[in-house]
Design a binder for these strands. Structure first.
Length: 387
DNA sequence: AACAGAATCAACCGCAGAGCA
DNA sequence: TTGCTCTGCGGTTGATTCTGT
């Protein structure tokens, strides 16, 4: 026998929510705040289970939710964060405050996986036969494989990379959460009821603005799930404070980054001939995403495969779980140990070694771009006043 | 216009973990 | 320490909408 359903009451309604139900739920939460979902159906008279109420609030009625029309920046973020965190949709959603985990998950499954898969098929046409037998995770495996390959490199160079990432990401988060005043009236492609839920959501925004505590309890639940990831980032920042030689060498790090970027351009140029075959198709994707670095990876992959060399002696699995595993490994290792374990000479060696590595991954590039303010300037996200 | 297949996305299900007595 | 309750998360489903023929 299986586990009894959470909503074993007779008469529990399922299926789409009606505007009336939304109003009841929204007005109740307006008065009582989100939480204590178990009591919501009882107190409201809604013939819905507590989970359904919570889901409806979290994904649709909660003020500040932006629906549809994912921007290029958001796509980049989702792809990058998915590579870094795996299918931790709640964690990913915490970096996109206007998006729900469900929305991101759906967007990934319906759009981004296909895009990556198509892009993979363009970059690796010889893999089409083998990939045909695999499932929809192929695209991710391709991406995660490349990412995992570069991840060891990131770990070894994180005394300047991770710190850079942390500061950039934290800056991004803080800048967006402190953003005030932008209207969240996003244009929704979905008419009919979607717009009515948006209206309900907007109705609640005024209340939410005047009830920061209630809002915080709502968002805190969301952010709580990502404390682990953020702690990793925070540790990196703390580490940068605790290791003066790292932060004080920021100039050197910049030089290192410059070297790497120069190398990246060199590799890219060296691959231009090979890129000709795919450039037209790649242009299409570049209109959606900045995939030049992935293309570079492909070039590097060809290059490295001919050399039959292994990155830092590491072989990485292409399983979807792998990025999480490697991430966890890096995250659970005390960052002091990791940084201190890199001597100055080793670091120089790593930097030299890095010049034989593939160029920056998408995430690295994004973070570097963001660090220079390019991303925010080119596509500032609309953030609800509540954040 | 009608149909079929594909795409989308809201909602459900079941598991895991936190919190509490 | 244990067992229970509640909440959150991620995978999946299925109804609806879209697109091509």
């Amino acid at each position: 026998m299986g586990r009894p359903p959470c909503c074993d009451k007779v008469g529990i309604k399922k299926g789409p929510w009606t505007p009336e139900e939304d109003l009841i739920l929204a007005s109740y939460i307006k008065d009582h705040g989100p939480g204590n979902w178990r009591s919501v159906p009882t107190n409201t008279g809604l013939l819905r289970c507590s989970k359904s109420c919570r889901l409806r609030w979290t994904n649709y009625l909660r003020p500040g939710i932006k629906r549809g029309n994912f921007t290029e920046l958001e796509e980049k973020m989702i792809i990058s964060l998915q590579s870094l965190l795996g299918n931790k949709w709640a964690a990913i959603a915490s970096y996109l405050p206007q998006r729900t985990d469900n929305d991101i998950k759906n967007y990934w499954n319906t759009h981004l996986k296909k895009k990556l898969k198509k892009f993979h098929s363009i970059l690796h046409p010889h893999h089409l036969g083998s990939s045909s037998s695999s499932d929809s995770s192929t695209s991710f495996q391709f991406f995660s494989k490349d990412y995992s390959s570069s991840y060891d490199r990131i770990r070894n160079l994180e005394h300047h990379h991770l710190i850079h990432q942390n500061s950039a990401l934290n800056k991004f988060i803080s800048s967006h959460r402190s953003s005030v005043g932008s209207n969240t009236s996003s244009t929704t492609s979905t008419i009919s009821y979607a717009s009515s839920t948006e209206n309900i959501s907007r109705l609640l925004e005024g209340w939410m603005k005047s009830s920061p505590n209630k809002l915080n309890s709502s968002t805190a639940l969301k952010l709580k799930a990502t404390q682990t990831e953020e702690k990793v980032l925070t540790n990196g920042n703390n580490n940068s404070k605790n290791n003066n030689h790292n932060t004080s060498n920021s100039g050197n790090n910049n030089l290192d980054d410059d070297k790497l970027l120069v190398k990246k351009v060199e590799v890219q140029e060296s691959c231009n001939e090979d890129d000709d075959l795919i450039s037209n198709e790649a242009d299409y994707f570049e209109s959606l995403l900045t995939f030049d670095n992935i293309s570079n990876m492909a070039c590097w992959e060809q290059k490295s495969s001919s050399d039959s060399t292994t990155i830092h002696g590491s072989t990485t699995s292409a399983s979807p779980e792998e990025p999480q595993t490697t991430t966890t490994t890096a995250a659970t290792t005390p960052i002091e140990d990791r940084v201190d374990s890199i001597s100055e000479s080793d670091r120089q060696g790593l930097i030299e070694d890095d010049q034989n590595q593939p160029p920056f991954s998408l995430l690295e590039k994004w973070l570097l771009d963001e660090a220079t303010g390019q991303v925010l300037e080119e596509d500032p996200m609309e953030i609800s006043p509540i954040f």
